[in-house]
Every structure is written in structure tokens, then in C-alpha cells.
Amino acid sequence: MRQGEVVLETRGLSMHFGGVRAVDRVDFALYENELRCLIGPNGAGKSTFFKCLTGQLRPTAGSVVIRDIHVTEREPFEVAALGVGIKTQVPNVFEGLAVEENIWLSARRWHVPARARSLTAETLERLRLGDIRTSPVGRLAHGQRQWVELGMVVAAEPWLVLLDEPAAGMTHEETVRTAELIREINRTATLIVVEHDMQFIRMISHLVTVFHEGRILMEDTMEAISADSRAREVYLGHRA
């Protein structure tokens, strides 16, 4: 799995809030075409790490490099402009706008009107949102809103996709469908997925990075992590 070039790398990445070291000197590397999961108990620093990658937080120290470009001091829109698709933990969607307009706004950012329209239609079909395309997103169920956000990520045709808890609050059936979709995205893009749901991770992942107290505890396959005593202790003991 680990071949090709490193597309995303952090060196000594730290994020402190007052005295709390949410992320503490993390060295992390992601290779092209990888599908990496980040796991860890609550407060392990996954989401803070994620926000540092996407420009939503300015790290206290260290650097984030995406394809040889330093993005540490960049704004989120500049990170997105590198071809990075981002889905946040709490669904961030345009509540008052129709599903299709949500998707279109993403597609239109990088494409001429005609291509944006066809890309929007394709995405609606791919995510099975066709029936509700004219509904305002604010009226949809939680799982559907998550998919609208995924649709926005996909419609931009990113080469690097960062997803924070994409299956949170979904029914089992929806989760399975989301896992399928993520594997499909992985055919053309490199992914990082922050997740809580162990079953979900088993469905999609090859390599898993375990966070604990702001640091990387270990990096391995899900089977190896399940078997590891330290990992079980911090995280898996009570779940799997």
C-alpha cells in the first residue's frame, strides 16, 4: 500500500489551547491513493489535527505540507483551491438552499457553467439525491444532509479528500452505502477519514492511525490494532 509519493505531511505539528496540548508534535505522512483512517478516543486530538490540515486552525508550531506546498498559514479556501475536498464533523451545508444548488455551488467553483451543470446532475445521481434535489437541505434528515455535504465534496472532483466523521448519526443501511461511496472515491482520490465507528472502519480501511492524548500511538492495519494491547487499552477495550 505504501508506495508512490507523499502527498500530505505534517512535521512536529502542535496545537495548544492554553495549557492543553490538543495536538503534540505529530509527524504524519500520507501516500498517494491511500485511504487512511484516524481513530482515537474523545479528546485524542483527531478533530483538532483535522482542522489544522484544512486551515481552520493555525497550529501553534510545526508545519503542514500538501504536495510540496506549505499550507500552515493558509486560509481554508486556499487549501481547498489545491484540490482538497473537506467534510466537517458537524454537517456544514447551505440550509436554506435546494440540494441541487448546494452541489452546483461546489461544481461551479472549478468549472464552466455547462460542465458544472452536468457534474451536478452526475453527483445527484451518484449519491441518489435525485428525488430530493429541489428540497431545501434544512428540511432533510440528518443522514441525507451528510450525503449532501459528501456530494459537495465529490462534485468538486478533488484529488485529496478529508472527511471528519462521515457516517456519524447514520442508520446501518446508510453507513454501508457511505462506506461504498468512500471506496468509490478512493479510486480517483487519496483520503483521510476521521471515524469513531469501528465497524465502519473495518468496511473501508487499509491503514489506521490511532491518536491518543494529542500524539500518534500507532499506525497499522485494523487487525493489528485490534490485537494490540496498548490500543485496546486506550480505545478498543470497551468497544470491540
Binding site: 481552520q56 486560509e75 466537517t88 455551488l105 467553483r109 472549478w110 468538486a156
Partner: peptide, 20 residues
């Protein structure tokens, strides 16, 4: 439409790559 989307959700507009 981008301006309207910023009204709806500034962070999302930013993450789509628009300079809010």
C-alpha cells in the same frame, strides 16, 4: 449565489474554495 451561500454557511463556502 455565492453571496447567498455565504449568508447560509460561511465555513462551507470557504471550504468549497470561495474567498469569503
Amino acid at each position: 449565489r455565492v453571496c447567498v451561500s455565504i449568508r447560509e454557511n460561511e465555513l462551507r463556502a470557504e471550504l468549497l474554495g470561495y474567498d469569503v
